[in-house]
Design a protein around this nucleic acid. Structure first.
Lengths: 242, 242
DNA sequence: TCATCGGGTATACAATCGTCTACCTGCACA
DNA sequence: TGTGCAGGTAGACGATTGTATACCCGATGA
């Protein structure tokens, strides 16, 4: 996990001790980047100063700012991903299980509930980690190719998780695996924007949630209609109000 | 248009002369920002040097980097917007006109053609202005609140244009104006990502075009199915291959 | 017990930065 | 005719930057 460049004695002891300065630097960088500027354009001295450390201590732990960025993304990214998966499993444990669409009306109703829960989940997470989110998204289109790629990888990873979880819970009729993956990617990326709106416009929270939810449902509805248009009209299903 | 702060003699003469240095600075900033770093973190001297001018000349034209950024976005943004509108009008002149969905099959086929044309249009534009696009998107999530707001305004403006143009050409059944606006917003934002993919992965150009096109169609299909599910099944329409 | 080494510090240096003040030049207008 | 001003230049200022070299300490393992 860590790349502790032990010149000697690389036994199988991870040697996790004294991650004090390293952690301090990462936290300082996060705070500074969130309020001041992009990660890549942070000053080495600036970060060290804000962490209460000597400028040169930076070199002990990181060689680049890319290096620090990737480390941060590693830490927070896995946390986010784990949190999302775990939370997505929660409703399943509450007996929230919709196998096939043998009862389409009920199936879609529960799909809507699932969408609502997921949207709330993501937006809550973003609110709880707004600094990390702000900085991360900045790097998504930033100048560092390394960070850009890492962030895109994280988003795609989330989309993959989402696809797999969905497949275990929701058997969409006639929607193939690749199709579902594409839809998940699109949703994850769109949530980037919705999250931004959510952070920047606290007064519109409810409205933004509705918009996001509606967007997701529209996509799934389209996917179903594209593959099994009969399903919708036969059951005389109405698109939910949202 | 320009804010030539004439202390005296503000007759109705715009006085457009000698925009030489100003233009040079903007071009230099664009080039530097595209290759080096974010706009906001550019050096004043750096830009001036790259423009072959004295550092102090910067102050003659701009007071901030935000100031310069907004000026650039003004110039390129209106160009993009005009280009898109004009190009979207082109098919309409070719007799490409689908009023209502009295013939749903034909209507949707032409909607697909319209989607394809629009996607190609945007992606071509991005390829032709990759520097400006790269820098602009960087600022969309950047540190400068001024630039962020300006970029979001541009995107929303494009979405509005798109909605109006669509309303003149394509009467989607039972899809309200606000609904169409929401869909347009979502499409425009998603195109940001597709454009990024397009720039970064030249080998997947055709594939990305297909994905974008498919995404748009899926949305419209969903919107139609949500409001008029009968339309799709009655006419026994198949979702296009894409 | 003692050498090794990771983590942290101190100092120094050249480069670059933003900005201030001053000076130059050629139009425009009265 | 000549005055004012926008546009551009020159030089200097203190501050801050990244980095190189050298020193320090406490734990660890032989």
């Amino acid at each position: 996990m860590a790349k502790t460049s032990d010149g000697r004695g690389n036994k199988d002891k991870p040697v996790e001790r004294s991650t004090n300065g390293r952690q301090k630097l990462m936290e300082a960088a996060l705070e500074l980047a969130a309020t001041t500027r992009s990660l890549a354009s942070l000053g080495l001295r600036e970060v060290a100063r804000h962490a209460g450390l000597n400028p040169n201590t930076f070199y002990r732990h990181f060689k680049d700012f890319d290096d620090l960025g990737v480390a941060m993304l590693d830490e927070l990214g896995t946390e986010l991903r784990a949190g999302l998966r775990e939370a997505r499993m929660r409703p399943a444990k509450k007996g929230f299980r919709l196998s096939d669409f043998s009862n389409p009306a009920e199936g879609l109703a529960q799909a809507q509930a699932l969408a609502r829960e997921s949207v709330g989940l993501v937006l809550d997470f973003v609110m709880d980690h707004r600094e990390a989110y702000t900085v991360g998204i900045r790097e998504l289109h930033g100048t560092s190719a390394v960070m850009r790629q890492a962030m895109q990888g994280l988003l795609d990873g989330i989309a993959t998780d989402m696809t797999e979880d969905l497949l275990g819970v929701l058997m969409l009729p006639a929607v193939s695996h690749e199709e579902l993956t594409a839809v998940a990617r699109v949703i994850v990326r769109q949530m980037v924007f919705f999250s931004m709106d959510y952070l920047e416009q606290p007064s519109r929270h409810a409205e933004i949630k509705r918009e996001a939810e509606r967007f997701i449902l529209l996509l799934f509805w389209g996917a179903i209609a594209a593959r099994a248009p009969d399903l919708l009209s036969q059951a005389n299903l109405k698109f939910p109000k949202v």
